[in-house]
Amino acid sequence: MEGLSWSASGRDIVRDVDLEVRPGETLGLIGPNGSGKSSLLRCLAGIRPASAGAVRYDGQDIRGWSARRIARHTAFVEQATEAETDLRLGDVVALGRMPFRGRWRGPDRTDREVVDAALARLGLTGLRNRAWRTLSGGERQRAHIARALAQRPRCILLDEPTNHLDVRHQYELMDLLAGTDRTVLVALHDLSLAARYCDRLVLMHRGSLVASGPPGTVLTPGRLRGVFGIDAETGHDRLGNLTVACRGVARDPA
């Protein structure tokens, strides 16, 4: 049973955002570049301390928690970054077991099993001995997700995980995230993807929370015009999924 609630307010980047994330839900974080999505996720992951307000996991303020304790609860996948490392894919996934291992201990059987399971889940078992730099962007991204799963977190925070992925992998990834019983909070640029997979969406603009709720209520042409500055139409496809079609840049952004 998890009730993740937090409110963080930074001077500029994230302002007085109040939000409660329900256990097990897939929550999409949308908003234009620079709207504070990444900073918000970092606050939530305990990487940046909130300058005001509090982040709570299960009702407990995480201020004062060790990084290790937070890491056992919540995993964070950064936006794809360049990293030159000699690690192999399997090593990277095994990093997810760090919060559970002592300083002096190597991986034990549980660690290996969890890593194996995470690799299998992402279809990476065959690539585990591949050097990191020989992997494609999509393979790296999946490896990071597997690493997050290896943390066995109750909550996974992801910043633009579908960047660098081709369409098929985007959908595969979102299927996987939406299919877990873990709480997932994911920042997305692709509004259709967000509408299709997220239980709820949170729309951010200039550091503030503009709207939250089911995709249908958040993604309205008016808001898209006001926040993103685009002329968009929303509708439903034959399967009943919400679609967002962008007609172009709004002439007179509201």
Partner: peptide, 22 residues
């Protein structure tokens, strides 16, 4: 004693922090 943390730094400070490294 910092060996695990050094591995964690492979992907930068934020990822290291999210893996439980102070």
């Amino acid at each position: 004693a910092c060996a695990p943390a050094l591995d964690g730094f492979s992907f930068g400070a934020d990822t290291a922090a999210s893996l439980g490294v102070d």
